[in-house]
Computed example of a mutant assay.
Amino acid sequence: MSQVVEDLVKLLTLKENGDNRFIGHSQDLGFSRVFGGQVIGQGLSAASQTVSDRHPHSLHAYFLRPGDAHHPIDYEVEHVRDGKSFSVRRVIASQFGKTILAMTASFQIEEQGVSHQEVMPNVPGPENFDSTVELFRQHADEIPEKVRDQFTAERPIEYRIVENQNPFRPRHGIGRRHMWIRSVAPLPDDLKIHQYMLAYTSDWGFLETALMPHGLSLGTRNLDIASLDHAIWFHRPFRLDDWLLFVADSPSASGCRGFVRGQIFNRAGELIASTTQEGLVRHHG
């Protein structure tokens, strides 16, 4: 396992700090705020450690305050219900005594039943595209010097975007994006770790889909963008150390909010997860 992947697995595998309480360290990605995917992944990790013999099938999270990337986060898990088939947990993430995220996660025993899914889009494979890190390196001179090293550094998750373009000179397009994603090294044979990692990964580049119809990107000046809420449904087992196709689209933006939804397929064409998000999009242009 590469060091960056090992560090991310360690970051998302929380240790208990009292009854139903956990503490998670923060990751500095070059911004003062904590990356939202980190808090979702850690919250799911905390909730999962209070459930036996059941795997998460859905989570719904609200980002209430920006987290401080230079300080740890406290997680408190409430046992809402344990039924015969399902268990529900509520997670509160806080810093300095204030809530930064509230999340509910549901877990289910393994069961067999009816099955159907939408067909995976037919797009070129990941070998046809450069990674986003390579794109950042190609345009390093356009990245502010204070965050250039973070943007161009090796990352634990590789993203290859089918609709690649210069992130600092975006063009107007349709609100739809296809991203190939995977960890850059093999992961342990533990489904929950793959789920924590996908929760982390699904927040990266997702809300940017709502910027595409307007010719905006994270490199646009005077743009405020932040996740407001996030939901994930896990449909089938998967591995994040093999390529997955993340298909995202944005059917609406209004009131300084952008709405995005996504489907995630494995290379065999199985729909393994779905996700939605709404985020703040303010352009003071």
Rank of each mutant, 00 (worst) to 15 (best):
V5M: 12
A140Q: 15
F168C: 03
Q38V: 02
P170C: 09
S274E: 03
K98C: 02
S45V: 01
D28H: 07
G24I: 10
T275S: 15
V91P: 03
V4D: 00
E118F: 12
T276S: 13
S227I: 06
A231H: 12
G205T: 13
E118D: 14
V119W: 05
L14E: 04
G36Q: 06
L187Q: 05
N222Y: 03
G83N: 05
D242G: 10
S87K: 12
S85Y: 08
R257W: 03
G83R: 00
G205K: 11
S58Q: 08
E145L: 08
L211T: 13
L101W: 11
R33Q: 12
S2E: 09
H178N: 05
V77E: 12
Y62K: 06
H139S: 11
M120W: 05
V123T: 01
L29A: 11
V34C: 02
E111S: 05
P72R: 02
I193T: 15
R89C: 07
I174F: 04
T275D: 06
N122F: 10
D242I: 08
I174A: 10
Q195E: 09
N122T: 14
E78H: 01
Q38S: 06
Q165V: 12
S2Q: 08
V4Y: 00
S217M: 12
R33Y: 06
I109Y: 04
